[in-house]
């Protein structure tokens, strides 16, 4: 029988009793609803302006953009809130003087870290799943494939797991929660920006495979790829392939392959962050 991680269970129990969690959920839904309303108004505005030139099918097609818009809003919120959730994972335990007690138990440091990460992923997915009714408006007008929602959920789970493991790693290396959050944001920015650099050099030095994997590691590229697939524009890598800016076989630039590679890279990054964090908090291995 699967053993539930005690740290995860404890964190979820404590969080569920805190009013802040429910206020956060309310704020999340409110932002999503406002975002939906703004996109709705924009789409309606464009269509009424262009009503002389487009027929009704074009109008319905434009409604498909709700889903990517809501997806982008959720990805943005998750990117901001997960470091805040996980930044206090280890620093709070130290602050409450419970960390040492935890480390004297047979619970391994890896299990402590994964328990913290899993509790943040579950809380995040609670928010995302609670937003599905709002996202469901996008499905009313049709044009969306049923597979898009589970793909979105899978991408979000893996992305949340990577962000969570990064946040816990930063928490393990920080004395204060604020410091952990700042470190996590800095690493994000580096990840988003630096992953484009090899692509730029790739054009000069023809190291296409190197730049391909770096682009796949970028969560923005992953979501844009998915977005383009939803609106029927192929994928970002297919676009680059067509314009001969990336000299790889066509199959490697397909949506499914690039998405799979991106998810695997994120999982590998998560494992790396977990290992680093576990080693740091292990009193017999990490530096004091």
């Amino acid at each position: 029988m699967l053993k539930i991680n005690p740290v995860m269970q404890k964190d979820l129990r404590i969080t569920s009793r805190n009013a802040r969690f429910y206020w956060g959920l309310f704020a999340y839904e409110a932002i999503l609803a406002i975002g939906f309303y703004v996109v709705f108004k924009i789409v309606l505005g464009i269509n009424s302006y262009n009503s002389r030139y487009y027929d009704v099918t074009d109008v319905y097609r434009s409604f498909i953009s709700f889903f990517p818009a809501l997806m982008a809003i959720q990805a943005g919120i998750i990117t901001i809130i997960i470091p805040v959730m996980t930044g206090s994972a280890i620093t709070d335990e130290k602050g409450h003087q419970t960390f040492d007690i935890l480390r004297t138990t047979p619970l391994s440091c890896t299990r402590i870290v994964t328990g913290k990460i899993m509790s943040s992923v579950i809380r995040t997915m609670t928010f995302v799943i609670a937003g599905i009714p709002i996202m469901a408006f996008s499905f009313i007008v049709g044009g969306l494939n049923w597979i898009h929602l589970p793909i979105f959920l899978l991408i979000t789970i893996v992305y949340s797991f990577m962000l969570g493991s990064l946040g816990v790693m930063c928490s393990a290396y920080s004395k204060k929660t604020t410091g952990a959050i700042v470190k996590a944001y800095i690493i994000y920015i580096l990840l988003y920006v630096l992953s484009f650099i090899p692509f730029g050099f790739g054009q000069l030095y023809a190291s296409k495979l190197f730049s391909y994997f770096f682009l796949c590691a970028n969560p923005i590229v992953l979501y844009v790829n998915f977005l383009m697939a939803i609106v029927g524009e192929g994928s970002i890598f297919a676009y680059l392939y067509e314009h001969q800016t990336i000299g790889l076989p066509a199959v490697m630039c397909s949506f499914w392959v690039t998405t799979a590679v991106s998810l695997v890279i994120m999982i590998l990054l998560s494992i790396l962050y977990i290992k680093i964090a576990s080693r740091k908090i292990n009193p017999l291995k990490g530096k004091e």
Partner: peptide, 18 residues
């Protein structure tokens, strides 16, 4: 070894809402 030891630190740590 950890199963042999029960540790009581000098400061009692508290989990809120527990």
């Amino acid at each position: 070894i950890k199963r042999c030891i029960g540790y009581v630190p000098d400061f009692f740590g508290v989990y809120e809402n527990f």
